[in-house]
Amino acid sequence: MTENITSVGGGGRPDAGVSALRGPTGAGAPAETRGRTTIANGVVAKIAGMAAREVPGIHNLGAGVARTLGAMRDRVPGAGGATAVTRGVKVEVGERQAAVDLDVVVEYGVSIVDIAGDVRTNVISAVERMTGLEVVEVNIAVDDVHLPDEEEGAESDEGRVR
């Protein structure tokens, strides 16, 4: 059995009449599919970062140095903002697919295997629902475990001697 594929424009490419995120384009296509939608890496990184932070047991995102610099940047008015959301998040975005790498800090006592699965599920769900991109992988690097008595970036004011 053979199928005839008709495309509108595009110089003979079989997928030339298909939008990257929707479907057929051209005069006979529904209005919402006419044209191309491009999603920037930063958009996917923000979505992934927010979705990862929503998972109970995730204390923070970012490797040690990035967290320290980010904490200092967050204290300066007007300097933190959007970078805090994407700290510890790297993405690669193609026309139809995305891959996500996360550096996370987990709370002490949680199952790292379980939390990694929960983070993957939440990130994939959020990115695919909001962007229409297929998430091909979510790689998670657990960089640290946050202990209950640790303060973020706080130096001890007490010395050994008084």
Rank of each mutant, 00 (worst) to 15 (best):
50 M>E: 05
50 M>V: 11
51 A>N: 01
52 A>L: 02
54 E>L: 07
57 G>D: 02
57 G>I: 02
57 G>A: 04
57 G>T: 04
57 G>N: 03
58 I>F: 01
58 I>W: 01
58 I>T: 03
60 N>L: 07
60 N>V: 00
61 L>R: 04
61 L>H: 01
62 G>I: 01
62 G>C: 05
62 G>N: 03
63 A>R: 13
63 A>F: 02
63 A>S: 15
65 V>W: 12
66 A>D: 15
66 A>K: 04
67 R>T: 08
67 R>D: 10
68 T>G: 11
68 T>R: 15
69 L>I: 13
71 A>T: 13
72 M>G: 12
72 M>L: 14
74 D>K: 11
75 R>Y: 03
75 R>A: 15
76 V>F: 08
76 V>C: 08
76 V>M: 13
77 P>A: 12
77 P>D: 09
77 P>T: 08
78 G>W: 04
78 G>C: 09
78 G>K: 09
78 G>R: 08
81 G>E: 08
81 G>K: 06
81 G>T: 09
81 G>A: 12
81 G>V: 09
81 G>Y: 09
82 A>S: 14
82 A>V: 14
83 T>D: 15
84 A>N: 13
84 A>H: 08
84 A>T: 11
85 V>E: 10
85 V>T: 15
86 T>K: 10
86 T>D: 05
87 R>V: 06
87 R>H: 05
88 G>R: 05
88 G>Y: 03
